[in-house]
Write a protein that binds this DNA or RNA. Structure first.
Length: 373
RNA sequence: GGAGGGGUUCCCGAGCGGCCAAAGGGAGCAGACUGUAAAUCUGCCGGCGGAGCCUACGGAGGUUCGAAUCCUCCCCCCUCCA
């Protein structure tokens, strides 16, 4: 068993935790933010860009890689790490999010999900067993259970039924797992119903996973609810296992969740926003296409050490974006990912130095000033 | 000199008596994006605080209850023939 989690430190005033995940492909310091690389690539970035930005672990996606190019092909070519030339740790999502996001193209059944491919319309039946099988073929370091990411809004009955399915599938996934070198995480669902969330914990944890995820948040519910779920449920998860808040989030969301004891995050926000021209800084969000940057010779963020900020002006980045140049997406993504990685580095350092609460407050205060821009 | 075609809102371009401040693109301006069907999507885009009014379809007249649309003259542009 090459997967392990070590809890190194817990913050004295909050529930923030400092930890270390060991995998066959390397060490991951937590709290960690994992850039999303759905189709075997973090869009617009080369692996070396990711490394230079400080990325430790990235995501891949079961559903997408199964459809194209096919998990057996990837297995034949040496697994996902080799295939995509990313030697570091990889976490694969199970396709559970696609159960949600491809709502119109799938049918949920007791034993799995009937998907209609968004690529060519062909039909595919994804079961918990298959989801694990695909992820074993991909060779990811952390596999996720197939779940149903319950949509918002959903009635209590719908949510309970959905949760029952997720729990049942979690057991199937656990049983289907054969490779001891790959970790498998369980996922806590339960929508916006706290009782169901607690039940989910009670039912998922005993199955015995290497880590636990909080899923089904950031699907359109009010932020308050997401925070409440995080606050309530995170402490109920086993202390000695990594906690993963799926699909989250904004820098503010991450800081909040870290303060409640969450260790792992992933989100498309930094990468997608970058491609769409929204750039993060400590004090403001920059919509790079805005006319106000037309003649601005400053970098996106004076305090940023990324390749983009060290070499290019806002005016140039605006030009590239407006002109529709590929380089705009590359440079923007490098910046946003580096921004997120620095955020996580700062979070880890502040926990280490027992000043996380102060750090969090500082960041949130400067974020609050965004409204002034 | 002769024959034909054309000048529409920032640009291209439809409209060819009322439903036209004028289709559709583009440009411009702004917004959204949370386990990626996303280099995507949305809104605004003549002026004046709105119902409304004003200014607008090369220019000037005219016909008509009503004109970007019909008529007259003028000014430009393009193609072909001499």
């Amino acid at each position: 068993m090459s997967f392990a989690f070590e809890l190194l430190k817990t913050d004295s005033t909050t529930s923030a935790r400092l930890g270390r995940i060991s995998t066959l492909h390397g060490i991951v310091n937590t709290p960690v933010f994992m850039p999303v690389g759905t189709q075997g690539t973090v869009k617009a970035l080369r692996p070396e860009d990711l490394r230079h930005c400080g990325a430790q672990m990235i995501l891949g996606n079961t559903y997408h890689l199964y459809l194209r190019p096919g998990h057996e092909l990837i297995r034949t070519l040496g697994g996902l790490h080799t295939f995509m030339n990313w030697p570091g740790p990889v976490l694969t999502d199970s396709g559970g999010f696609q159960v949600y996001s491809l709502g119109a193209l799938r049918k949920i059944m007791p034993d799995g999900v009937m998907f209609q491919s968004h690529i060519d319309g062909s039909r595919h039946f994804l079961t918990p067993q298959k989801a694990v099988g695909i992820q074993e073929a991909l060779g990811s370091d952390i596999m996720m259970c197939l779940d149903e990411c319950t949509p918002y809004p959903a009635t209590e009955k719908q949510t309970a039924d959905s949760l029952a399915l997720t729990v049942k599938w979690a057991r199937s996934c656990r049983e289907a797992k054969t490779n001891p070198d790959q970790a498998l995480f369980g996922i806590v669902q339960g929508g916006t119903y706290m009782d169901l969330r607690r039940q989910a914990v009670e039912q998922i944890v005993p199955i015995g996973f290497d880590g636990y995820a909080l899923g089904g948040v950031s699907v359109g519910e009010p932020k308050k609810i997401m925070y409440a779920i995080t606050e309530e449920i995170s402490p109920l998860l086993p202390r000695e296992k990594p906690r993963y808040l799926m699909g989250v989030g904004t820098p503010e969301d991450i800081i909040y969740a870290v303060s409640r004891g969450v260790d792992m995050f992933d989100c498309v926000i930094p990468t997608r926003s970058a491609r769409h021209g929204l750039l993060f800084t400590n004090t403001q969000k920059i919509v790079i296409k805005n006319a106000r940057w037309r003649e601005d010779s400053n970098p996106i963020d004076e305090t940023c050490d990324c390749y983009t900020c060290r070499n290019y002006s806002r005016a140039y980045l605006r030009h590239l974006y407006v002109a529709g140049e590929i380089l705009a997406m590359i440079l923007n993504t490098i910046h946003n990912i580096r921004h997120y990685m620095r955020l996580m580095e700062n979070i880890r350092a502040s926990i280490q130095e027992n000043r996380f609460e102060e750090f969090a407050k500082g960041v949130l205060d400067s974020k609050a000033n965004e409204n002034n821009f």
